[in-house]
């Protein structure tokens, strides 16, 4: 399977939507970890560095992280 994935990746046939899904999962994880260590929110640049991705990739993937968790709490609770 790893072989096939590598082949696909090298071949450029992988759908962008798929790599975005993977990255958005990593963003969520890295954000939690950053907050735990630094006791504040990371900025986009800090996340891009941590995850070793470009700002473009980060901006694209960060849209999968909609709806701030705090939204409901702030307004409805």
């Amino acid at each position: 399977i790893g072989e096939i994935q590598r082949f696909l990746r090298d071949d450029g046939m992988v759908k962008v939507s798929r790599s975005i899904r993977e990255l958005s999962f990593k963003i969520r994880h890295a954000t939690d970890e950053f907050i735990r260590v630094h006791e504040r929110q990371p900025t986009l640049t800090e996340l891009a560095k941590t995850l070793e991705v470009t700002m473009d990739e980060l901006v694209l993937a960060s849209d999968a992280l909609r709806d701030p968790a705090s939204l409901h709490e702030q307004l409805f609770e």
Partner: peptide, 21 residues
């Protein structure tokens, strides 16, 4: 997405970005 990209140079935090979006 366009607005995220437009403000990216201000290096927002994830929360600021979420609010803005």
């Amino acid at each position: 997405m366009v607005m995220t990209s437009f403000i990216a140079s201000l290096d927002p935090t994830i929360d600021e970005l979420a609010e803005f979006k």
